[in-house]
Design a protein around this nucleic acid. Structure first.
Length: 789
DNA sequence: ACGGCTGATACT
DNA sequence: TAGTATCAG
C-alpha cells in the first residue's frame, strides 16, 4: 500500500506534497465529455505557504442571536419564510443540531424533532428574502481578518488568509511572547497526526508548538496558528461571532481542516499528516468533487477515497478528464493545490433573484414585470451602496430566468440569459432588465413553436438580475492614472488594489459606447494579453469576429444602447441622486475632419491592428460611432489617450476642452461623489464643435513625450505592440504640464452637462466644498504633480 | 416541480 | 464576448 511509503522516507516533497509513482490503471472507461466547468491546476508559488481558512459557525444563526441575545443558548435556526410547511431552514445552530435538526429541513419538521427550537425568519424586503444583514455582518468579519496577511473573501461567511509572510516574520523574530489568552486559544488547536503519548491532548499540542527541532514548515504552521488564534479572538471580541479555522500549507487542506472541528476551534494540518488524512477521505468531501465530477470518479474509476486516486497516472487522468482537470486531480490526490489566495475583500458581482416554484410560476408578462422591477430595485440599492462605500461601478447587467413549459413538448429548453451594459438608476435598470427578459422570451418561444406566443404557454419559475464587471474607481492617492504612471508602486488602495490591473482591462474593453480604439493607445494590459497568447483575446477591445451580438441586432436594443436618448435624462433619475452620463467628448460631426483623424489613427494603430479582420472592424467602428465620441471611460481611465491623439494629430481637439477633461478626471480621481455618479453610466453626451482649434503644442502643453515612438518602458513582449505603451509612457512622464484653474476657459464649462457643470464650477472654490476629498484642497494642487514643476 | 438565494469560476 | 454549466453553502 502507498501508505507505507509515506510513513518512512518521502521520495519527493513539494509543498505538502508527496509524489508517488502511481500504478497504471488498465481498465477502460467511457469518454468524458459532459462536465463543462471543471477544476483547473495551478502551479505552486511558494514551497511552503501558510494558508488559513476561516469559517463562521452557523453564521446566520449567530447574526440573529447577536441581534436578539435572548436566543443565545437556545436551539435556534434561521428559516426562509415560505408559509409552506414552516419555511426552509438555511442555518441551524449547534444546540439545535444536537436534536437532529438539519439544514434544508422544513420549519415544521424541525419543530417536530426539537419542539423548543426558535425559528427566526430571514428579513423580507420587496416580497423576497433580503440577506443584507448577513452580508454586512460578513463584511465586519472580513475587515478584522484582513488585518493580517492577504485576505480573500470566499463567500458570505468564509475567508482565506495567506499568512506566509506574517508567519515567516514571526518565526524570524522568534515568537515574541503573545498574550496568555492567545497562547491558550492556540493550544486548543487540533493538530492532525499528533501522537498523544500518554500526555493529555492539550499538553501534546503545547509540546508540538514548542518543539524546537521541528521541521521549519511545522514551525511556520505553528506561527500561523498563533496568528489565527489571535484573529479569532479579535473577531469574537469585536463582533461576538465565533468561527472555526484550518491552518495548512494550501487552500484545499486549510478548507478541509476548518470543517473538522467545529464550532469555535481550529485545526492544523502538518505536512506529515497529509497522506494519512487524504488516504481515507471520501472523494466527495473534497471541494469541487461534491458533484458530477466526484460521481464520475466513483462510478467510472471506482475511486471512493482520495487515496484511491493515487493509483492513476497523470496521463490517465488527463486522458479522461482533460489536461487541466487531469493534473488537478493528480495533484489533489497528493495534497497539492497551487491555488493562490486572491486578495479580494469585496464580491465580484451582485445579484437579486427569486424562485416561483410550482403553482406560483409567473404566467403573465405583467407579473414578470412586477417581479423584475422588485428585483431591480434591490439590485440598484446594492449598487448604489457599493458605489458610495467602495467607489466601485458595475458595468454589466444580466437577467437570468428559468421557465417551465406548461403545455406539451418534453423539450425542457433553457431560458436564455441575456445581458447588456448597465446604466445606473432604478428606472433604467428596470427598463433594461425587462427588455432583456423580452429578448430572452422571444428566443425561448421563437425557436420551438411560434404559436406558443399567442397561447402564453410558458411559466416563469425563476428570475434573477445581477450586476457584474464591477471595477474600482480611482481614489485620491491611488488613481488609475497614478497606477499607470508607476506600475511598481505598492498598491495601497483601500480594498481592491491588486485587482486594479485586470479590472481595468475588463473595464476598458467593456462593450460600452464610445470608441474603444483610443484606449488601446495607453493600455499596457494588451501586452499581457499577448503573453497569454489566447487567440481569442489577441485584441481584447475589438470583437475579432466583428459581429453584433444577438441583442444588438435587435433594433430596440441598438437604438437603446448605442446612443443615449436625451429624454432619459429625466427627473426620476435625478431624484434618485443618480444621474447618467457624462462623457467628455468632442464630437466631430464634420465628416471630413473625422475621416482625416481616422486616417491618422489608422497610421497610428497600424502595428496594433494585427489582422485584416481587426482593421475591418476598426473601419466599421468608425462608421458607427462618430470618431470623437469619447466615452466617459476615457476621461476616467486615461486622459492621456486624448493627449496622444491631439499631439500626433494636432488641430483636432482644442486645448480648453482637453484641460477641462483633465480637470474633471482629477475630480473623479479625488473621489468627488457627484462626479463618480456621472461616471457610473456608459452613456455619453458631446461637446459641441470646438470653438477654436489650436494645436496642442501651441499652448505649450507638452514639451516632450508626445512623439509616437518615445517608449522607454520595456514592453512585455517586444513586438508590434510597443506603441500600445505610448500612452502610458506619456503619462508617466507626466506630459501634462500643470495648469492653473484660471487657465481653464470658463466658457468651456458651459458645455458640460448642467449637473456636472455645477459640480465642477463649485470645485473651483474647494475650501467651500465638503464633498471633495481633503487632500486636493485647491485646484492648483490637482494640476501640480508633486514630482516636477 | 419546492432547498432559496447568492456567488464564483471554467469553458466555448 | 456573452452565455451556459457546475459547484458550494
Amino acid at each position: 500500500m502507498f501508505s507505507s511509503i509515506f510513513q518512512n522516507s518521502i521520495p519527493n516533497v513539494v509543498e505538502g506534497v508527496v509524489v508517488v509513482e502511481g500504478k497504471e490503471e488498465e481498465r477502460r472507461v467511457e469518454d468524458w465529455g459532459e462536465i463543462e466547468k471543471m477544476p483547473v491546476a495551478r502551479p505552486e508559488s511558494s514551497d511552503s505557504r501558510v494558508i488559513a481558512h476561516i469559517d463562521m459557525d452557523c453564521f446566520y444563526v449567530q447574526v440573529e442571536q447577536r441581534k436578539q441575545p435572548t436566543l443565545r443558548g437556545h436551539p435556534t435556526a434561521v428559516v426562509q419564510y415560505n408559509s409552506w410547511k414552516g419555511g426552509g431552514l438555511i442555518a441551524v445552530g449547534y444546540e439545535a443540531r444536537k436534536y437532529g435538526v438539519k439544514r434544508s429541513m422544513r420549519g415544521d419538521e424541525a419543530k417536530k424533532v426539537c419542539p423548543d427550537i426558535q425559528l427566526v425568519q430571514v428579513p423580507v424586503a420587496r416580497g423576497k428574502a433580503d440577506l443584507t444583514v448577513y452580508r454586512d455582518a460578513g463584511s465586519e468579519v472580513v475587515s478584522i481578518l484582513s488585518r493580517k496577511g492577504r485576505c480573500e473573501r470566499a463567500s458570505i461567511d468564509e475567508v482565506y488568509l495567506d499568512l506566509t509572510e506574517v508567519a515567516e516574520t514571526m518565526l524570524a523574530e522568534n515568537p515574541p511572547e503573545r498574550l496568555e489568552t492567545i497562547c491558550e486559544e492556540a493550544f486548543k488547536s487540533h493538530v492532525l497526526g499528533l501522537h498523544l503519548d500518554g500526555s493529555s491532548n492539550q499538553d501534546s499540542v503545547k509540546k508540538w508548538f514548542y518543539m524546537s527541532d521541528a521541521d521549519r514548515r511545522d514551525k511556520l504552521l505553528a506561527c500561523g496558528a498563533l496568528i489565527v488564534a489571535e484573529l479569532r479572538l479579535e473577531v469574537l471580541k469585536e463582533t461576538e461571532y465565533t468561527c472555526s479555522a484550518g491552518i495548512a500549507h494550501n487552500k484545499m487542506l486549510a478548507k478541509l481542516a476548518s470543517g473538522m472541528n467545529k464550532p469555535a476551534q481550529q485545526t492544523i494540518v502538518p505536512l506529515s499528516s497529509v497522506s494519512t488524512l487524504l488516504e481515507s477521505l471520501p472523494i466527495k468531501k473534497m471541494k469541487q468533487l461534491g458533484g458530477k465530477l466526484g460521481n464520475s470518479l466513483q462510478a467510472d474509476l471506482c475511486v471512493d477515497t482520495v487515496g484511491d486516486l493515487l493509483q492513476f497516472s497523470e496521463d490517465k487522468l488527463q486522458e479522461r478528464y482533460g489536461i487541466n482537470t487531469g493534473t488537478w486531480l493528480w495533484n489533489i490526490a497528493r495534497g497539492i493545490c497551487g491555488e493562490e489566495v486572491e486578495g479580494r475583500l469585496l464580491p465580484k458581482s451582485h445579484g437579486s433573484g427569486k424562485t416561483f416554484p410550482g403553482r406560483q410560476a409567473l404566467k403573465t408578462i405583467s407579473s414578470v414585470q412586477k417581479w423584475i422591477y422588485e428585483l431591480c430595485e434591490e439590485l440598484s440599492e446594492r449598487l448604489v451602496r457599493d458605489l458610495e462605500q467602495n467607489k466601485r461601478i458595475a458595468h454589466t447587467l444580466t437577467l437570468h430566468a428559468s421557465a417551465h413549459k406548461l403545455n406539451d413538448s418534453e423539450s425542457l429548453k433553457k431560458f436564455p440569459s441575456k445581458s447588456c451594459p448597465l446604466r445606473y438608476g432604478i428606472a433604467k435598470i428596470q427598463e433594461d432588465a425587462l427588455n432583456l427578459f423580452h429578448a430572452g422570451l422571444r428566443e425561448y418561444i421563437g425557436i420551438h413553436h411560434a404559436k406558443m406566443k399567442q397561447h402564453n404557454e410558458w411559466a416563469i419559475t425563476g428570475l434573477s438580475v445581477s450586476a457584474s464587471k464591477i471595477v474600482a474607481t480611482p481614489s485620491g492617492t491611488h488613481s488609475i492614472t497614478k497606477y499607470f504612471g508607476n506600475k511598481n508602486q505598492t498598491s495601497s488602495s483601500a480594498l481592491e488594489s491588486n485587482d486594479i490591473h485586470t479590472q481595468d482591462a475588463a473595464y476598458l474593453s467593456s462593450s460600452g459606447i464610445g470608441s474603444s480604439v483610443e484606449l488601446h493607445l495607453s493600455e499596457p494590459q494588451i501586452a499581457n494579453y499577448e503573453d497569454e497568447a489566447s487567440d481569442k483575446h489577441d485584441m481584447p477591445c475589438f470583437n475579432p469576429d466583428g459581429d453584433e451580438t444577438e441583442v444588438c441586432k435587435d433594433s430596440v436594443f441598438t437604438t437603446k444602447f448605442a446612443e443615449q436618448d436625451p429624454t432619459l435624462f429625466g427627473m426620476k433619475e435625478q431624484s434618485n441622486g443618480i444621474t447618467e452620463e457624462i462623457s467628455l467628448s468632442c464630437s466631430g460631426s464634420e465628416k471630413g475632419l473625422a475621416s482625416k483623424v481616422t486616417q491618422s489613427k489608422m497610421d497610428f494603430l497600424g502595428p496594433v491592428l494585427k489582422s485584416e479582420k481587426q482593421k475591418r472592424k476598426f473601419e466599421k467602428e468608425k462608421v458607427t460611432h462618430s470618431l470623437f465620441h469619447y466615452g466617459l471611460k476615457i476621461v476616467i481611465c486615461d486622459i492621456s489617450a486624448l493627449s496622444i491623439l491631439s499631439g500626433s494629430i494636432s488641430c483636432l481637439i482644442d486645448i480648453d476642452h482637453l484641460m477641462l477633461a483633465k480637470y474633471v478626471h482629477q475630480l473623479f480621481c479625488q473621489g468627488n461623489s457627484s462626479i463618480l455618479k456621472y461616471f457610473a453610466s456608459g452613456n455619453s453626451c458631446s461637446f459641441p464643435e470646438p470653438r477654436h482649434v489650436k494645436t496642442f503644442q501651441e499652448r505649450g502643453a507638452s514639451s516632450s513625450g508626445m512623439s509616437v515612438q518615445g517608449n522607454q518602458q520595456q514592453p512585455m513582449s517586444g513586438t508590434t505592440l510597443s506603441t500600445c505603451n505610448l500612452g502610458q509612457d506619456d503619462l508617466r512622464s507626466d506630459t501634462w504640464r500643470s495648469y492653473k484653474s484660471d487657465e481653464i476657459d470658463p466658457s468651456v464649462l458651459k458645455e458640460l452637462p448642467p449637473e456636472i457643470q455645477a459640480e465642477v464650477r463649485a470645485s473651483f472654490q474647494p475650501q467651500k466644498r465638503a464633498n471633495i476629498v481633503k487632500r486636493g484642497s485647491s485646484i492648483d494642487h490637482y494640476f501640480s504633480p508633486t514630482a516636477n514643476s
